[in-house]
Every structure is written in structure tokens, then in C-alpha cells.
Write a protein that binds this DNA or RNA. Sequence first.
DNA 1: CCCTCTTTTGCACTTAGTTGCATAATGACC
DNA 2: GGTCATTATGCAACTAAGTGCAAAAGAGGG
Lengths: 178, 178
Amino acid sequence: MSLPHAILTALLEKPSSGLELTRRFDKSIGFFWSATHQQIYRELNRLERDGLIHALPQPPSRGQRKEYEVLAAGRAELTRWVAENQDPKPIRDPLLLRLRAATVVGSGGLADELRRHLGLHRQQLALYEEIERHDFPAEEEADENRLQHHILRAGLSLETFWVEWLTRTLADLPPEGG
Amino acid sequence: MSLPHAILTALLEKPSSGLELTRRFDKSIGFFWSATHQQIYRELNRLERDGLIHALPQPPSRGQRKEYEVLAAGRAELTRWVAENQDPKPIRDPLLLRLRAATVVGSGGLADELRRHLGLHRQQLALYEEIERHDFPAEEEADENRLQHHILRAGLSLETFWVEWLTRTLADLPPEGG
DNA sequence: CCCTCTTTTGCACTTAGTTGCATAATGACC
DNA sequence: GGTCATTATGCAACTAAGTGCAAAAGAGGG
């Protein structure tokens, strides 16, 4: 149950309407927890129903922006959730599964797909590097920034892993039809 | 839609009953695509209905083992799927999200949780290393084994990443209450 | 004013995964 | 020959996420 907490986090940083949240999710938070606008609106309604957020006083008619802000109960819930025991989920990756299948039915056409993924991961890596240059330029960082930087580094490391692993695996894949 | 293909792969390696599949998923394939027995049985029925597998002739009464084997159509579908275009999913990790939330509500209690995760990832890493020692001992490998080894190495690298990243992040976390 | 385009919100449907529980066959124990 | 644990299969309900589509309100043009 992460989406509601992602939304609470975003709203604590800045009270927003559903659309603004959607836009902000497409950047920062969405890098490791993406969501569509439909999901976000649904979740906002639930969070309001449960008394964790509330809409700022504005005409609540359809098709008109509603700004939400987090209530004390919402902040408490987020604080609780941050320290909660949650086991890490095992790896769940279709690409590894496809490689495994390739050992049985042959790797025909797989090399192209690996190359395509390599390109996409290189792109994502470049984006994270760009963000790092822009948002975390030099030495001294406040505590809050240090944490944020660690989060970005996780993204950088994961993309780096994929780029290296795909490169090595491709180098070792039989020329074609294998 | 990966589960049916995971099952097809497992069945091609060796025709099995639902329970056997469940057991085998708890090892190898389950490392990167886990499934419960309920999911597996449901999926077996669908695959049979769709003509991709069929049950070997045995009394089909309830509570009695049914062995399945893959039909030509099933193998064809798996072959197609291996080379299909599928974009990599963006990272989706609750722990990173919680770290992000911690920058807003404080990191109270989070250090313990990170330490716990560190322990679990170390354990998983040790397991993969054990498997590597056992299944891929020395130099020369057949093509099929090379691929399998790459898959295992992906697991090794990912767990290594987590261990290193958690260690560094912990070192940088404010003593307590942050 | 009317028409149309954009913005903002949202419902309804579908898919995938999880949890809890049910039921039949089988072999072992007494 | 009864009952008890184990093996094997499976249904039903629920949760979480993803997709498709639409309706209300305002903005701007003619």
C-alpha cells in the first residue's frame, strides 16, 4: 500500500490539486513510484474519506480544481509507515524470465530486445546524471539533501547495473537464432 | 503477462503437476518470478483451456495429481514472447519511497528497518553465492549454461547493490529521531 | 450568445496478484 | 474399519494497479 503514502509525501511538500500531483509524479516521486491521474484522483478521494487529508474550501463541483492538504492524522500515518516492518519484495523481472525461457526455446530475436533495453537504460541513466549535476552540485549538503541524494544514487546504481549487465550478456549471446 | 510464460518454461523443462510446479517455483524460477500454488493452478486451467498445454491421461478426479505437458502452440507462444517488445518497467520500490517520505516527516525508526533489510539482502546474496558455487563451478560452460549463469549474476549484482547502498545510506543517517 | 478546445475531475471496467478456505484422495496409525 | 495427517487441487473474495472513456467548467473565437 504505497500509493497513498506517496501522495501524502507529495502533499506535505506542497498542498496541490490532483492535476498538479499528476505532473509532480511524472518527475521526482514518479521515478520510483509512478501513477496515472486516474489512480491519483481515486486515492485522493479515499484519503479524504478516511480523514487523512481534506480539500481546501473551494466550490466542490466537478471539473473544478480542488486543492488538498494533509491533516494531522495523515502526517501521523505517514510517520508510522516510514518505520514500519515491510519485507523487501523478491526480484520480479520479466526480462530475466524471458532469458530463462530462451534457454529452453532458443534466443531468436532476443538480442535485438536486449539492445533496445540497453538503449533505454542508458537514456534513463543519462537523465539521472543530469539531475545529479543540476540538483546536487557540490560538497556540503544539509541532512535532508543527503537523504535525497542517496535516493537518486539508488536510481543511478540500478541503471548502471542494467547497462553493464545487458552489455555483458549481449556480448555472450550466440550470434543469432541460438 | 508473465506468469503463464513462466509456467510454460518450467513445463518445457519437465512436465509436472501443479504441486511440483509450486515446489520448483520456490527455487529457481521463483527467484525472479514468484507465485503461490493458487495462482499456478488457476493459470494451468487457463493454459489448458487456451490449448497451450494439456493434462496427461490420468483419472481427472479432484485431489489427484494431474501432469501437464506443453503443446506445440504453447512452445510457439513462448518463442514469440521471448523476442516480443516489452518496455522495462520503471523502478517501483517502497523502501525508496519511505526514504523520500523520511525527508519530510523525519527518519525516526527508519535506521532499524534499513538494518533489517541489510540483513535480509546479505542472506539472499549468500544464497546466490552458494548456488553459483554449486551450479557453475568452473571454466568451460555450454551455451545454455552461460545464459543461466548470466541470469544468476543479475541476482548477485542486484543483491550486492542493495547491500552496498544500504550500508552507505545507513552510515549517513542521523543517529536517531532525525 | 453559440461553438469548440483545453483543463480538471472522475467513473467503470479489466487485469494481476493475494488470502482464506474447501474438498477429494491416500496412506498410516490404532 | 475408523480417524487423522498429508498430499493435491481448486474456488471465491479481495486488493491494487492499469486502461478507456466521459462529463463539467472555463477560455477564446466568431
